[in-house]
Write a protein that binds this DNA or RNA. Structure first.
Lengths: 253, 253
DNA sequence: AATGACCGTTGCACATATCGCAATTGACCT
DNA sequence: AGGTCAATTGCGATATGTGCAACGGTCATT
């Protein structure tokens, strides 16, 4: 592994905590100021850090651009989007699309009930991995050992009385989700919100993404929401088919 | 500048175009495959790139997290937010907050008319810098030479018949904005959308951010929207005062 | 106004981490 | 099985990054 690059990249999370001056960066990195300076300069040239008027450094704008482009380039998302919109038109509720990556679950698309506008408001924020329906679907498909290890590492915050309380309960829930092929979150994250979700699978049957429909209690009861399950599953399957059809493929260029 | 880091960071925009395999990355970088491999490994360890199942690399999730945290840490944004919400409640329209950074203008906050939800949907995307009211405000405050140089470098896409057509027209518009202390975008980006905006200034009088209110023609005419100008300016001034009050300051830690 | 402390910046000589080569492994297709 | 292609590893030469020490600018203090 490259030492220089390693050091340079370590600056980013450090600056994510808030702006810092050269001395501070050098200290935190444990290197000489001149070294830190050169690294910061390089990061600066690439737009990843920005130097504000008081000379301190903070994260730069290019980071947004990259994050934006990154999410635009996920093929699942591209394929799924029209399906999500259609589902939203049919049932009127909020629709989410999420993927698992390196111990995290993140939303990569969302269709709001009234506005057919993509919003990435939650992207990057830690999803409530122990309770969200999409998280259950994604984790349920992991190889058993990995799943077990991950479950042990997680925290189990009690958002509500119905939140998953601990690792054994979570593993059991994942097992159930795996067998039944769909998942719910009934007030486990926010008391009044329920979700039903279904997995999206690739050619090899592995779960590559998960989708869910969410609605507050005041609009539809949990039971009513569950009547949407067949529709949700059908949509997920349609996406799976289309996704599997397309070769994960070399792009033309 | 650090060569190694430079090369490593060059991989990011490259991957932003879409997933790529080792050979391709090495080619594009103009380095040996083994070199590219080591760089990619380092990026991977930091979560900036992800290795998908077909072995190809793409941008990783940590990027989202960083972008997210970056935007959360902008002090202007933090201070401005409640004001934006209040303005939105009073007038009902969409409110934007934007900053200028390194030849780009980007939205850092947005309050939608009906949903009081922050959405970062446009963050990172190139803002229509030649027509947006907030862009005019931010660029109008640049030192003359810088402004002139930038104006020459820009493209002037004709979104509509009212879009700023070229550099001279843009510079003239900026001059006007500078003198009057506010800006508009009347159908310059999308035919039916109008905006009015005002600048937010720091202690030294420099423009640090800009805000605007946007509404479609069908809801209010341009003239009606302009009646909101005093309200917008007052809000911008309130934010400026509060922002100037707070020392741009060392944080407690 | 002068002094001093502090922080960012620069040039340089040394040591080391990085580079590219060439060979190995492993996957996939014929 | 044989063959092709891509990813991976070990290694020696050298370019590269490193820390030092000295410089210069800015701000606060006396």
């Amino acid at each position: 592994m490259s030492q220089t690059v390693d050091r340079a990249l370590s600056i980013l999370p450090l600056l994510a905590e808030g702006p810092a001056d050269l001395g501070r960066v050098a200290d935190r990195l444990g290197v000489h100021k001149s070294t830190a300076l050169r690294l910061l300069r390089t990061l600066h040239e690439h737009g990843l850090v920005y130097r504000q008027s008081d000379q301190r450094y903070r994260l730069g704008a290019r980071l947004f651009a990259l994050a934006q482009e990154a999410v635009e380039n996920l093929d699942v998302r591209e394929i799924a989007h029209p399906h999500l919109v259609r589902l939203n038109e049919e049932c009127g509720h909020t629709v989410h699309l999420a993927v698992y990556e390196e111990n995290e679950v993140l939303y990569i698309d969302k269709v709001e009930s009234r506005y057919p506008v993509r919003m990435y408001s939650r992207i990057g924020k830690p999803v409530a991995i122990t309770v969200a329906a999409v998280a259950k679907l994604l984790l349920a498909d992991l190889p058993e050992t990995e799943r077990r290890v991950l479950a042990e590492k997680l925290d189990y915050p009690l958002y509500t009385a119905r939140s998953t309380p601990n690792a054994p309960a979570f593993l059991k829930e994942l097992e159930r989700v795996r067998e039944q092929g769909w998942a719910t979150d009934l007030g486990g994250h926010e008391e009044s919100i329920n979700c039903v979700g279904a997995p999206i699978r690739g050619t090899d049957g592995r779960v590559v993404a998960a989708m869910s429909v969410s609605a507050p209690n005041v609009v539809v009861t949990a039971d009513e929401l569950l009547t949407l399950l067949p529709l949700v599953r059908r949509t997920a399957e349609a996406i799976s088919r289309e996704y599997s059809g397309r070769t994960p493929a070399k792009d033309p260029v």
